[in-house]
């Protein structure tokens, strides 16, 4: 049974309250900030707070990983994309097409949390102790315990994460490569040959659609035929050099 009424030392309590506050305020900041960059920074705060909570619970290694991987890699990736896409301005808040969405969303979220808290109000952890190795020991460092478990009980899981990483790499390559981009003709003039130009098109053959007949299929997509008529495709490189200036930060 969890020592519910055990005495809590003041430093511990302070530490907990501060980190919890960081976590929750950071999270609220992510949700409420209209500027994605600030949102990402709030996310960092939350991640940091969570790392503190890890530390308080003697998950030292995870706390470090949390800072390094989450804060160091993931959030940076976020920021990178935000900057790349130039969406670091505040979100346009026109009329919300789904007027009741916000209200219902908050209601649903509160219901979920409320239900979980009600379900758990007496006893959170009811499981038996330590099936797959103890979490803390006087003699063995946390990191060793973790590694042992990782390479025995969870060996298969550990190995298959490689598949996950391969997917991430291949997926990124697939999504990023061989892009045919649509830009506005009225936008910055490229002055470079278009890929549908018979004289110059050959050079871009590998990057673009090799089958000239299916080019017309571009708006085989019936739904968004919108204003496609004044749009053309250009290969990626051209876009990078000339077209991106239009909305730099």
């Amino acid at each position: 049974m969890i020592p519910m009424l055990a005495k809590v030392s003041v430093p511990d309590a302070t530490m907990f309250v501060v980190s919890a506050a960081i976590v929750l305020l950071g999270a609220i900041g992510v949700v409420l900030n209209r500027n994605p960059v600030r949102g990402a920074l709030c996310l960092v705060a939350t991640l940091f707070g969570v790392a503190l909570l890890f530390l308080e619970q003697r998950a030292d290694f995870l706390a470090a990983v949390q800072i390094i991987v989450y804060g160091g890699a993931i959030v940076v990736l976020f920021l990178f994309v935000i900057m790349l896409l130039g969406v670091d301005k505040s979100e346009r808040l026109g009329r919300d097409p789904l007027s009741w969405q916000r209200f219902l969303g908050i209601v649903a979220g509160c219901l979920v949390v409320g239900a979980i808290l009600v379900l758990a109000h007496i006893a959170w952890a009811t499981g038996t102790k330590s099936v797959s190795g103890v979490a803390s020991s006087k003699t063995v460092p946390n990191i060793n315990l973790l590694a042992t478990s990782l390479f025995t009980t969870y060996l298969l899981a550990f190995e298959v994460t490689s598949a996950l990483l391969v997917i991430a790499v291949v997926g990124a390559v697939l999504l990023a490569r061989r892009r045919t981009v649509v830009i506005d003709l009225d936008g910055p003039s490229t002055g470079l040959p278009r890929d549908d130009d018979p004289e110059h098109g050959g050079g871009y053959q590998d990057q673009t659609n090799p089958d000239p007949d299916s080019r017309g299929d571009l708006d085989g997509d019936n739904g968004d035929r919108g204003d496609r008529d004044d749009l053309v495709q250009v290969p990626e490189g051209i876009f990078e050099e000339h077209a991106s200036g239009g909305h730099g930060s």
Binding site: K129, A135, L150, G171
Partner: peptide, 29 residues
Amino acid sequence: VTFSRTLNDIAGQVVVFFVLVVAAAEVVV
């Protein structure tokens, strides 16, 4: 991590490790 502490069971922490990997892969994709 909290359950890991309560149950004194390392599995909870190992899971976090995997979640980090998953999150990274998800973010990339």
